[in-house]
């Protein structure tokens, strides 16, 4: 097992409008991409992010060697319960997911 952040080039998280977050995992090499694509289970990500798997969108993009995850914001951007206006910090959390 290894932390995702140790395997890939970069993890970026951003708002995709005020109601969605999107996480882009830039894997770099084809080997890292294959490892993330196969080792990162969508169910496990949903549990880790405490988000319903039904609304967790995932795109495995071989050309770019990117795995992209999009989810409804747990707190709508800027509401009292939102802690991260730009959705920037989710990347750090995803980078700490352990995969085989």
């Amino acid at each position: 097992m290894a932390e995702l952040g140790q395997i890939v080039e970069k993890v970026r998280s951003k708002n995709a409008g005020p109601f969605w977050l999107t996480v882009d995992i830039f894997c770099g090499s084809p080997e890292a991409y294959a490892r993330v694509r196969d080792g990162l289970e969508t169910q496990a990500v949903a549990r880790f992010l405490d988000t319903p798997v039904q609304t967790l969108k995932r795109f495995d993009m071989e050309d770019l060697r990117v795995v992209k995850l999009s989810l409804p914001r747990p707190a709508v951007q800027g509401t009292v319960n939102d802690r991260d206006m730009h959705g920037a910090a989710l990347a750090a959390l995803v980078a700490e997911i352990n995969i085989p």
């Binding site: 951003k14 708002n15 995709a16 409008g17 969605w20 999107t22 882009d24 830039f26 969108k57 795109f59 993009m61 050309d63 770019l64 990117v66 992209k68 999009s70």
Partner: peptide, 16 residues
């Protein structure tokens, strides 16, 4: 081609 196509990811919930 990589920097350009990767921009479709940016702040988009669906890259396609």
């Amino acid at each position: 081609p990589h920097t350009v196509s990767a921009h479709m990811l940016y702040e988009n919930s669906d890259p396609y």
